[in-house]
């Protein structure tokens, strides 16, 4: 049901009944190791190219989610998924082998929540019994597409972020055990004219703030309704800017309850500059860490705000600014306990 300007509420409480989270070798050394289902020790994931490796990450995450949901892939009616590469081919190839009716999405790093919001909406409207929502990213494949060759010795500035090699998937169903999806707010494109592709956090922060503000206004909520507002992935700089923007807008968000997936994934000593990024980062942190913490009772209500920078290597070379988007999905613990 539409609430306010751009928020859906899901009165039938769609549930995330199974999740799958797969990471690469660098993520295996990270902070959230316990929240991954499996890792690849090899950046190629046993394949012949980085693009194929990304496909395998997504496939594995989807299979793991289906397995944990205790269903078969034939039970899943639709799949919403995407990645960061041109024409989202890794996702298309993964969906070829999964053979599930497929909607390909591109929302850059916001794809994870775009997929989850659409899945919840369709489940809520009884358009399907089971839907798979997933997204993935691969560090080397993304570097190759957007920046320099992987082995090129360019110096990255401290504002840059490290694209995660990870995939996250979740199976959404109308009933079952797991966190329920209560609402979703769809973002519009916000562009404050920033042009530096090595400062995505700075470009994306206003989109995150805009969507969070719209969410709170549409549902007439105070920020402290949530135990945690998780953005993904603003990094150090984007998070600091967002906090200042909230202050300017008189939105009272407590600093410790406003976290960023890009700052959770890796250990402090890992050389990731301003934090992690990538469509796989917010997906892996949400479907891993956040879902687990809701299931264990540590968190009751979480608003996940995935942010995406919708640039391409060509628009950047043509001196265009970076259009950004953020989609928010609220996850809550089921009442009456699991």
């Amino acid at each position: 049901m539409l609430e306010g300007k751009r928020t859906w509420t899901f009165e039938s409480n769609p549930v995330i009944i199974g999740t799958g989270v797969i990471g690469g070798p660098f993520e295996k050394k990270g902070e959230l190791v316990n929240h991954f289902d499996a890792f690849y020790d090899d950046l190629m994931c046993g394949e012949n190219s980085f693009e194929q490796a990304q496909k395998v990450l997504l496939e594995d995450a989807c299979k793991e989610a289906i397995k944990k949901a205790n269903v078969t892939k034939e039970d899943i009616q639709f799949m919403f998924a995407g990645d960061l590469l041109n024409q989202i081919t890794s996702t298309s190839f993964a969906s070829r082998s999964l053979a599930i009716p497929f909607f390909g999405l591109f929302g850059a790093c916001a794809t994870s929540m775009e997929a989850l919001a659409l899945s919840a909406f369709i489940i809520n409207a009884k358009g399907a019994d089971y839907i798979l929502a997933a997204s993935s990213s691969h560090n080397a494949a993304v570097e190759k597409t957007f920046r320099y060759p992987t082995e090129y010795g360019a110096q990255k500035p401290p504002t840059s972020q490290w694209t995660a090699t990870a995939a996250g998937a979740g199976v959404v169903c109308s009933s079952g055990v797991g966190p329920i999806i209560t609402s979703a707010t769809i973002g519009h494109v916000v562009d404050e004219g920033l042009k530096d592709p090595f400062n995505m956090g700075g470009a994306m922060a206003p989109a995150a703030v805009d969507t969070i503000k719209a969410h709170l206004e549409d549902l007439k909520l105070e920020p402290d309704y949530y135990d945690l507002i998780l953005t993904g992935d603003l990094g150090k700089i984007g998070r600091a800017i967002s906090l200042e923007l909230f202050e300017n807008e008189n939105i009272a968000i407590k600093e410790e309850l406003f976290q960023d997936a890009g700052l959770m994934l890796y250990k402090k000593e890992q050389p990731v500059q301003s934090g992690a990024s990538g469509a796989g980062c917010s997906a892996a942190v949400t479907f891993g860490n956040i879902v687990n913490r809701i299931n264990s009772g540590e968190l009751n209500r979480v608003l996940v705000v995935a942010t995406g920078a919708l640039l391409s290597p060509i628009t950047y070379q043509q001196h265009e600014s970076i259009p950004c988007i953020a989609h928010a999905v609220s996850l809550e613990k089921q009442k009456g306990g699991n």
């Binding site: 500035p157 504002t159 004219g193 700075g202 922060a205 700089i237 600091a240 800017i241 300017n248 001196h319």
Partner: peptide, 24 residues
């Protein structure tokens, strides 16, 4: 390159953003 002038709100934002930017 067409010179796209930033709007006042973009300017205000860029001021905030540059404050938090970690300089090289």
């Amino acid at each position: 390159e067409k010179s796209k002038k930033p709007t006042p709100s973009q300017k205000a934002y860029q001021k905030i953003a540059s404050k938090h930017e970690i300089k090289r």
